[in-house]
Write a protein that binds this DNA or RNA. Structure first.
Lengths: 350, 350
DNA sequence: CTTTAGCACTCCTTTTCAATGAGTGCTAAC
DNA sequence: GTTAGCACTCATTGAAAAGGAGTGCTAAAG
């Protein structure tokens, strides 16, 4: 009769106890019993009363006990409720904001910023920080340059968004002179500078197909090269992770096998990346608790993410990975602030 | 009377037993007792006899027992002797060589090659692979290009050794036009292309100091910029590590604290880097066993390294880090081969 | 003189068992 | 509705006992 979504509204007191229980468990990492909770919650209730309430919470699937005579621990649903409605987010300490800001000034290029960000997140939260690299799809192509290297190789330099630079070495069918290459890049820059990469690519393909025969050799080569470079520029979807070792301090992850799987997942990247990609869709801070992520490896972990943007456009996400019992009230504002500061640093207008 | 170096030459039989013991311990990870050893060594001896010999070895500090009634385990000195004189290196499986070769073809730039190398080492040995980035000091500067970005920023592209590219964004005092920058790079290329970076830098400094007043504005700016870029190019001493998780499968490292320290040391980099730098000095394969490395963090680990070279000049080292009881007879030829193949891939002459 | 069998001894590991204690659920009284 | 009381469960702890792997020594055999 009652579905998952129909929460049989919790009494004030039940909420208070769930909150106290969750907070305590997050702090201590131990199942919390009725006596402790009665003391902890501030309500003047006896352990027995507390037990009654907790029994209800258990029936609702918000808490569970690891075994018969242990205290209670929040379930995933419990954490969810806690995070969604009970949590009082700590306002962020100004010194922390300052630390983030100092480390993410606009003096660096996009890649460097992103890497600092993950390091920062891990330092400040003492958890694992993770940041996806900026998406390139909507990036504007600022400039292309070709430089001849010896031996039928050409260096292509791509300037994207005035912030980010990418080079790739092209293997060509013959040697090109500097002058020749200059011509190509001039041509491409005239045609395409300032456009979005995706658009550029599409136009390249069309032009190549439609007018291949009529183009002179130069055009053709230029387009070919550009296509090669842009192909590389587009693919690189990846993320940066920092502070894995921070996770080792949590007992619940200390089972070496668990830890190993987790770390291997970080190496594997693909699964985590898929999850992070989902987060890009949302425009707000998101929290995955335990199994909610849908990835078994993160069963005992939570993920807090926020997207970062330039010009109101989501470029990627950053966040932290930690045990389900992470200090959400601290982590959430940090992730939030970092995302905003990173966005600011990436924004071209200073 | 007898110093460390004066090895009281081991009898044939003692050597054989030490070898068998070490091999067995490497394989099984358990202290090996006299009964097992008697069976294992192939010599037709009773456990009692073996015990006598082993007692001698223990007195010499080559083996030790974790506690009274356990078997014996090689000490660092034991491993050292084993590695230096007892070890019969397995000839490398051709398929492995092929795998390495395929993954390190010359199609990639130096940085990519180096990263693949560490991944490969970790895959093939199932340990942690580590490679230092190529030293730049003796690298020849092939080309410099400057491109204007918006907002008083200039992109400098450095081509080094025809293989490696480095860019950095310079913050300048005003905006420069493309033409201006072109002039600067032309000037620099004429003057310095093909020279070693260090030399270039020295000359830059001298010229700046001696003739500062007499140089026209252009020269001065060009030299300033070049100096900025080269400064960055020189510093980047670092290494790439892959396959940390492989180390988790070894019991002796499974103490979470040990593991954590180790992983943190990898993050810290500096200590490991110092050690690796020492290895660059040697022109041959080197092995540090346990405490020999002088770094406490690697107490329970060994490090096998080999330098890689271009034109007979050592550019960096690669190797693997694993528990002291790693399978040296397999690891050594792999490290050796990888170093040679990487050298070949980096060598400009194809 | 070397090798080996025998044996007592050490000490780690595993198992067993009881004691402890935290915490629960239920019932009955307030 | 709240609470005290109580029986019950079950992880944890520690001690004691059993088991076993391996040693060192001694004395006999080769």
């Amino acid at each position: 009769m009652s579905s998952q979504s129909e929460v049989p509204e919790l009494s004030e007191r039940a909420q208070c106890l769930l909150k106290a229980l969750t907070e305590r468990y997050i702090r201590e990492g131990q199942p919390v019993g009725s006596r402790t909770l009665a003391r902890d919650a501030g309500l003047k209730l006896s352990p027995a009363t507390v037990r009654n309430v907790i029994a209800d919470l258990e029936e609702m699937g918000l808490v569970s006990s690891p075994h018969t005579s242990a205290g209670r621990v929040p379930t995933v649903q419990g954490y969810r409720l806690f995070v969604d409605t009970l949590l009082s987010v700590k306002p962020l300490d100004e010194s922390v904001v300052e630390e983030i800001r100092v480390n993410l000034d606009a003096e660096h290029d996009a890649r460097e910023l992103v890497e600092s960000a993950s390091g920062l997140l891990s330092d400040v939260t003492r958890l694992a920080g993770v940041v996806t690299l900026p998406r390139r799809e909507h990036a504007a192509l600022e400039r292309v340059e070709f430089l001849p290297l010896s031996d039928r190789k050409v260096l292509a330099v791509l300037v994207i968004n005035d912030k980010e630079v990418q080079n790739s070495i092209l293997h060509t069918d013959r040697n090109y002179s500097a002058g020749e290459l200059q011509q190509y890049s001039n041509f491409l820059n005239e045609q395409f500078a300032g456009r979005e990469i995706q658009e550029v690519r599409e136009r390249l393909v069309t032009e190549l197909r439609e007018t291949r025969e009529h183009l002179d050799r130069m055009m053709r080569t230029a387009l070919d090269m550009a296509d090669q470079v842009l192909g590389e520029a587009e693919q690189g979807s990846d993320y940066v992770l920092a502070g894995q070792t921070n996770l080792m301090q949590f007992d619940e992850l200390c089972n070496v096998t668990t830890l190993r799987q987790l770390f291997e997942a970080f190496d594997e990247k693909r699964q985590i990346l898929k999850l992070l990609d989902q987060c890009v869709e949302s425009e707000h801070l998101q929290i995955f608790i335990g199994e909610e992520s849908g990835y078994q490896i993160l069963d005992e972990c939570s993920l807090v993410t926020a997207p970062y943007t330039v010009d109101g456009r989501v470029l990627g996400v950053l966040g932290v990975i930690g045990p389900t019992r992470m200090a959400y009230e601290r982590v959430i504002p940090i992730v939030d602030a970092t995302a905003r500061i990173l966005s600011a640093a990436l924004n071209p207008k200073e």
